[in-house]
Computed example of a mutant assay.
Amino acid sequence: MPLISVEDKHLTVLNLFTTDKPENQDKLIQEMTKIVDAAAYEGWMSSTVHAGVDAPGTANFIQWRSGEDLEKRYAGEEFKHRTMPVFSEITTSIRLLQNEVVHVLTSDALGGKVEIGPHRDDYTSIAVFPVAADGQDEAVDALGAGQLFLKDFPGFRANVVLKGLRARGLEGAFVVTYTQWESKESFEAFRDQAPQQQSEARKAAVARLQAVLQGAPSANTYTVVHTRAADE
Rank of each mutant, 00 (worst) to 15 (best):
T91G: 06
D231L: 07
H226K: 14
V13D: 08
D37A: 08
V53N: 11
Q214R: 15
A133I: 07
T19G: 04
A133E: 15
G111Q: 01
K203L: 15
H50R: 04
P85S: 09
V101Y: 01
E78A: 13
E31Q: 10
E77A: 13
L150Q: 09
K9L: 05
I35P: 00
R208L: 07
T33L: 06
R168N: 10
G111A: 02
G215H: 12
P154D: 04
T83Y: 14
D20N: 13
I126C: 05
Q214N: 13
F190N: 13
S218Y: 05
V225A: 00
V104A: 00
D54H: 11
T177K: 04
A55R: 15
K27A: 13
L97N: 05
V104H: 00
Q214P: 01
E185P: 01
E200I: 05
I126A: 03
A145Q: 13
I29F: 07
S218N: 07
D141P: 01
K80A: 08
T33R: 12
E138R: 14
R228D: 02
E31V: 11
W44T: 12
R95N: 13
R166T: 15
V6A: 00
F61H: 14
L162A: 12
P217I: 10
Q147C: 13
A132D: 08
S47R: 04
E100P: 03
P195R: 10
Q196Y: 10
D8H: 13
V53H: 09
P118L: 08
W181L: 07
F79V: 05
G76H: 13
L105T: 06
T179H: 04
E71M: 09
F153T: 11
A142P: 00
A158P: 03
L165I: 15
S125Q: 12
A55I: 10
T221H: 09
Q193C: 11
G52W: 00
E89I: 01
R73E: 04
G57P: 02
I126K: 06
T33P: 07
A229E: 10
T18C: 02
K27I: 11
S46W: 11
V212T: 06
A216S: 14
H226M: 10
T227C: 13
D134H: 07
T58M: 12
A127K: 06
A40Q: 14
A142H: 01
A59Y: 01
A145N: 08
A219P: 01
E77N: 10
S93V: 06
G164V: 05
R228P: 00
I29M: 08
S5H: 04
L11I: 08
V128R: 12
A39S: 14
V206A: 12
R95C: 09
A75G: 14
D37I: 02
V224R: 07
I29H: 02
E78T: 10
D152P: 09
